[in-house]
């Protein structure tokens, strides 16, 4: 079995209202040094198999189809464990 971490982030230039709200809140908490906050998604996937190259290809396909929306998001896939 394999475990992968998938990081889904908003593309540059896409506004992030949540990140803006969190930034403001951090400022209120006196973290004045914070310039920008962007919020994305962290997805963990466990899947059958040992072949890392094949799994990576599948995970990228899953990300393109469903896990990320290519209009607004980028993603990065990492295989982090092989059982």
């Amino acid at each position: 079995m394999l475990k992968a971490n998938i990081y889904v982030t908003l593309k540059d230039g896409v506004l992030d209202p949540q990140g803006e709200a969190v930034k403001k809140s951090l400022k209120v908490l006196d973290y004045g040094q914070v310039n920008q906050v962007r919020i994305g998604k962290f997805i963990e996937v466990w899947l059958e198999g040992k072949d890392q190259a094949a799994a990576l290809k599948e995970l990228e396909e899953m990300s393109d189809k469903l896990l990320a929306n290519p209009v607004i998001e980028d993603y990065r896939v990492e295989i982090v464990e092989v059982y």
Binding site: L15, D16, P17, V71
Partner: peptide, 17 residues
Amino acid sequence: LLEAGLLPGAMLRNSSL
């Protein structure tokens, strides 16, 4: 329809949250 690609673009959270 946006997610299906039948229309262009995507939806984000309302700017006011």
